[in-house]
């Protein structure tokens, strides 16, 4: 029974990780490419880490919760790097399919 739960979590996680990277590879411009890795990949790796925590907690040696630390860390850092990257993108004025916000590029000149 537990194996089925673990297998489900691992497959879900791997699926999302793959979809995130697929988004990175096939979406049309820089800003849309940013969405895949920040959301799908983070949740995917999170699901696999939860699976790992359950797997090692049930085995020998009592609860093993340090995987939660990596999950938490990824959930905090992924949006920060995404924000910095899109800020850098706006700063360099990468072309995008969405009309660029006038306010940002105007004020960032100084």
């Amino acid at each position: 029974m537990l194996d089925y739960l673990l297998a489900f979590l691992i497959l879900l996680g791997a699926g999302f990780t793959f979809i995130g990277s697929l988004g990175l590879a096939r979406l049309p411009d820089f800003y849309t490419r940013l969405h895949g890795p920040t959301k799908a990949t983070t949740l995917g790796v999170g699901a696999m880490l939860v699976a790992s925590a359950i797997h090692f907690s049930v085995g020998e040696g009592g609860p093993s919760l340090h995987e939660l630390l990596v999950t938490l860390f990824l959930f905090i850092t992924a949006p920060v790097s995404a924000h910095l990257l899109s800020k850098a993108g706006l700063h360099l004025r990468l072309r995008s399919r969405a009309p660029a916000p006038g306010k940002a590029s105007g004020e960032q000149r100084d």
Binding site: L6, I10, G13, A14, T17, G20, S21, L24, F30, R33, L34, G36, P37, T41, T42, G44, V45, M48, L49, A51, S52, H55, E67, V70, L74, A78, S81, L85, A88, G89, L92, L94
Partner: peptide
């Protein structure tokens, strides 16, 4: 084609390597 694209790719490589290591651990 641009530098930020490559940085996103590098960042995702890191996160996916974490995933690979977790799977290897299990």
């Amino acid at each position: 084609p641009d530098i930020p694209d490559r940085i996103v790719a590098l960042d995702t490589l890191y996160v996916n390597t974490v995933a690979l290591l977790v799977l290897l651990g299990i």
